[in-house]
């Protein structure tokens, strides 16, 4: 599993000389944890859980880091798109309870895909509105950006309250995704976690494909480095940015669906809770770096899962500790984005 992670990284960072050390850290963490945990099967379970969690966090964090890289905009409201996405799955789950409870794998997959599509569409649209109304007037003013995006977060959270009520809502996984799957002697991993890993990897690969093989991806990568020069070549970076913002919000919505099913409980504050984790991830990874975002997500999830097993009390602050250690080593994060 970990080897494959390393391979994925290679495509992520394409042609520039690859800085291997950050890539090796999650692998090293996993290997060091093995003797500490003692039991191989427990280690596998924990690692798979961490990979699932890490990939979900990555999906949610990638949009935030790209938006920052491209336009130097920091969106404290990003977390609310996660909540929006998660709650949108209710629009699908409620009328289609039959599909959820059905033993048919096809219907189960169908309902999950529908949840994802609806969530992405709605949170993407929220993103467009948010960009237009909240963020556009405060470009290049970080202080105001932090304030108004926070204000936007409050408003959208309150709208969720209006439409869905404030109390936590439990949701059920589709029939076939419940329970565990034996993948070897004594080794059981939860099915949904495998699905989360698969979806996460698929999203990551799709993102890499778009970034490395399409013209839009080329523009995004160039724009993260030097937006002004991209404009001087004749491209409207604003339009690109709006697109990336909407896509990032849609990804947050997708992450929200995944996270909702992972927890099987929806709360309005869930997005804000995860936002803290996302901030830690993008700070660790280096603001604006997609590769760093992936490594940061996996690292945070691995450390959180291992410490929760080994020493639950420490797990509460493991993320902060991880962030401090990384920042002491590389103050700009694992992959500092070179800005001009």
């Amino acid at each position: 599993m970990t080897d494959r992670t390393a391979e994925r990284e290679e495509t992520a960072l394409a042609s520039p000389p690859i800085d291997w050390i950050p890539i090796l850290i999650p692998v090293a963490v996993a290997l060091i944890a093995l003797p500490l945990i003692g039991s191989f099967s427990t280690w596998v379970t924990l690692t798979v859980a961490a990979l699932a969690m890490g990939m979900i966090i990555f999906i949610m964090a990638s949009g935030l880091t790209l938006v920052f890289g491209l336009m130097d905009v920091i969106n404290f409201g990003h977390g609310v798109f996660i909540s929006v996405g998660a709650y949108m799955s209710l629009l699908v789950l409620r009328p289609l309870t039959g599909w959820v409870e059905s033993p048919s794998l096809a219907l189960n997959i169908g309902v999950l895909v529908l949840c994802i599509l609806v969530a992405m569409a709605v949170s993407g649209m929220f993103g467009l509105v948010f960009e237009r109304l909240i963020i556009r007037p405060v470009y290049r003013q970080h202080l105001k950006q932090i304030l108004v995006t926070m204000g936007g977060l409050i408003i959208i959270e309150q709208l969720l309250h209006v439409f869905f009520g404030g109390s936590p809502i439990t949701i059920a996984l589709p029939q076939n995704f419940r329970g565990g799957l034996a993948i070897g002697p004594d080794m059981i991993v939860e099915r949904y976690r495998l699905i989360a890993v698969v979806i996460g990897v698929a999203v990551f690969l799709a993102m890499m494909l778009v970034l490395n093989r399409t013209r839009i991806g080329l523009l995004v990568r160039a724009g993260v480095e030097n937006p002004e020069m991209v404009e001087a070549l004749g491209y409207r970076i604003r339009r690109l940015f709006v697109g990336v913002f909407a896509a990032g919000s849609a990804l947050a919505g997708l992450g929200g669906v995944m996270w909702g099913f992972y927890q099987q409980t929806l709360t309005i504050g869930m997005g804000l809770q995860v936002l803290v984790l996302i901030f830690i991830v993008v700070i660790i990874g280096g603001l604006g770096s997609i590769g760093g975002c992936l490594i940061g997500s996996l690292l945070v999830a691995l450390v959180a899962n291992y410490t929760a097993f080994l020493e639950p009390k420490i797990a509460l602050i493991s993320n902060i500790a991880l962030m401090l250690v990384v920042l002491m080593w590389r103050p700009q994060g694992l992959y500092p984005v070179v800005k001009v």
Binding site: H142, I280, I283
Partner: peptide, 15 residues
Amino acid sequence: RAIFFAMITLAVATA
């Protein structure tokens, strides 16, 4: 930068 401080304080306060 200011945003870093905002993000880090949010994380620390949550912890």
